[in-house]
Nucleic acid binder design. Structure first.
Length: 553
RNA sequence: GCCCCCGUAGCUCAGUGGAUAGAGCAGCCGCCUUCUAAGCGGUUGGUCGCUGGUUCGAUCCCAGCCGGGGGCACCA
């Protein structure tokens, strides 16, 4: 019996109690969620449904709980129902009923955990979107890890997800980047507002090599070529480093495309048609204050140039026209001030931002070196790159470390600590648990134990029940993490599951292979399924985070 | 000044209304002739920043305050 099925059984008991008058005719909830109690003495599962219904029923919670318990006890697969504390129902399943979960998980394999809570939603998930003026640095790497994990989660929850990277290849920072390349290539110092770093020299050298005679051209023509080829080389490097990190984007969208296809004009026209623009001080403004923004925003500057915000407007419209129900974007922590104007802009287009726009603001990653904060500045060349991070701690640890914290939390990443590769890093704990499932499987095979005989009622040890209930929780963890846009919940769940599994492994009564001269028992054979089910869940969970599930460690 | 995030064990963090607030690391005491000790058991350690409010019930929701971090361009 799965938690969902148990929830349904509890619901049936509530309905029965209402039907026969034990509970007054209260609105019965559509769904009852049972949870895995922290304390094993509280049964396999618990629910606070009686506490929730007590007020409407007009009876003390324990009395309501007793009425439900009485009707739940007679359900199939229920071993025990206790009323506890203020009115909790603590439920213990029969070994037979609970054990069936193991076989179901093994049979579901990679689809175990896949659900439908977000089915039918077509989402555009935009993340990273770092400017092509330098390599991917540590701040952006966080969003690569979190965004990719979130994309996997949303898909597991049934949504259709397009991963998108927005390249700002049309603004003044790109102009500075091009000028920097040109100056450096000509042996002159980096301009005051330019970019520094080894990559600048490399790219400048490569552009010159690819364009013989480049440095003989007039300055303007040089700049144009450095612009064109430099950005292209930077694009390529960013793309390949992200792919190397296991982060794949379905669409790399260039801001330039918005200009080239006149999307900005179309967006401006739409906004003007809606009556939300005006002219002032020689510029064209969007009246975002009407919809809650602090101040109105310029769309066309006095010089006649588009602002970056104008491109944002066009880009949003473009996403909608490509058929996405919702644009989900993950800007950096320093962009939270954009929420107001983006929501207002969406409203200016006539959409409801609560439905078509979702902005996931996360916090910074701070780097510590020798316990001292390391300030990062791309222009000063003082950056830690994706490649550096991977080299220091490995891609698995990096992805896990960056995805395991709530996005609301500022991360202090101590380079010394992480480069030591001690088991301060919980990814080892989880990966070790997975590797252990594979070794046990291999050992079992030498005893001729495969996945054949399965007798659920033999999974009768407390450690079996603890592992089974932990495994059964996975689908709801996935659904909840997807709904809350919180991949870190998966990581914490896996750590918890790994702990339960390690304890199960250490339980003599729960061995997969026989001890000493013992014969292979039905219990051994059945527990091979439980071991395999644990492998399935750990592997599926790690896959959601983009972390490998090693065969051995 | 305005806005966003954070404040929970020595450290890093989970926990978005319920039962004695959890985990990892660090510390201390134990456990390897039997499926990997990158593991397990035990133990030490917390006025959930403060003050009010809502509630049968608040770490969680609301208000104010105090700390820490980050943002507030006709830059991108």
């Amino acid at each position: 019996m799965t938690p969902d099925e148990l929830g349904q059984a509890v619901l049936d008991a509530v309905r029965a109690a209402v039907a026969d008058g034990a509970l007054s005719d209260v609105p019965v909830p559509a769904k009852v969620v049972v949870e895995r109690p922290k304390n094993r003495e509280h049964g396999d599962y618990a629910t606070n449904i009686a506490l929730q219904l007590a007020k409407a029923v007009g009876k003390p919670p324990r009395e309501v709980a007793a009425a439900i318990a009485e009707r739940l006890r007679v359900s199939d697969g229920i071993a025990k129902v206790d009323v506890a504390g203020p009115g909790f129902l603590n439920i213990t399943l029969t070994a037979d009923s609970l054990g069936g979960v193991a076989k179901a998980i093994v049979e579901a394999d990679e689809t175990y955990g896949v659900g439908t809570v977000l089915a039918g939603q077509n989402l555009n998930l935009e993340f990273v979107s770092a400017n092509p003026t330098g390599p991917v640095h540590i701040g952006a790497v966080r969003w690569a890890a979190v965004g990719d994990a979130l994309a996997r989660l949303l898909q597991a929850a049934g949504a259709t997800v397009t991963r998108e990277y927005y390249f700002n290849d049309a603004g003044s920072q790109i102009e500075r980047f091009a000028r920097t390349l040109r100056e450096v290539a000509n042996g002159r110092p980096v301009p005051e507002d330019g970019y520094s770093g080894e990559y600048i020299d490399e790219i400048a050298t490569n552009v010159v090599a690819a364009n013989p005679g480049l440095l003989e051209l007039p300055t303007d023509e040089q700049t144009a070529i450095f612009h064109r080829d430099g950005v292209e080389l930077m694009f390529a490097e960013i793309r390949s480093s992200l792919e190397g990190f296991g982060v794949h984007f379905d669409v790399y969208f260039n801001e330039r495309e918005l200009h080239d296809t006149h999307m900005l004009d179309a967006a401006l026209k739409r906004l003007t048609d809606q009556g939300n623009t005006y002219e002032a001080d020689g510029a064209t403004w969007l009246r975002t204050t009407t919809f809650g923004d602090d101040k109105d925003r310029v769309i066309v500057r006095g010089t006649g140039e588009w602002t970056y915000f104008a491109a944002d407007c066009a880009y949003y419209l473009n996403k909608r026209e490509r058929g996405f129900d919702k644009a989900v974007i993950m800007p950096g922590a320093d962009h939270h001030g954009y929420i107001g104007r983006l929501r207002a802009m969406v409203t200016c287009f006539g959409d409801n931002p609560d439905e078509t726009l979702e902005i996931l603001i996360g916090q910074l990653v701070n780097l510590l070196k020798d316990g001292e904060p390391l300030r990062m500045s791309k222009r000063a060349g003082n950056v830690v790159l994706l490649a550096d991070l991977v080299e220091a701690i490995g891609a698995d640890a990096a992805r896990y470390a960056l995805a395991r914290y709530s996005s609301d939390q500022t991360i202090d990443l101590d380079l010394d600590l992480w480069s030591r590769q001690t088991n301060d890093n919980p990814v080892y704990y989880v990966q070790y648990a997975h590797a252990r499932t594979r070794r046990i499987k291999a050992n079992a095979e030498t005893f001729g134990i495969g996945l054949d005989e399965f007798s659920a009622e033999l999974l009768d040890q407390p450690a079996d029940a603890a592992l089974l209930t932990a495994l059964s929780e996975f689908p709801r963890v996935v659904a909840t993490a997807a709904e809350f846009r919180a991949p870190h919940r998966v990581a914490h769940y896996l750590e918890s599951l790994a702990g339960v599994y390690h304890r199960w492994y250490d339980t003599k009564e729960c061995r997969v292979t026989p001890q000493g001269d013992d014969e292979v028992s039905a219990g051994n054979r059945t527990r091979a399924w439980l071991n395999e089910a644990t492998h399935v869940v750990l592997a599926n969970g790690l896959r959601l985070l983009g972390v490998s599930a090693p065969e051995r460690m």
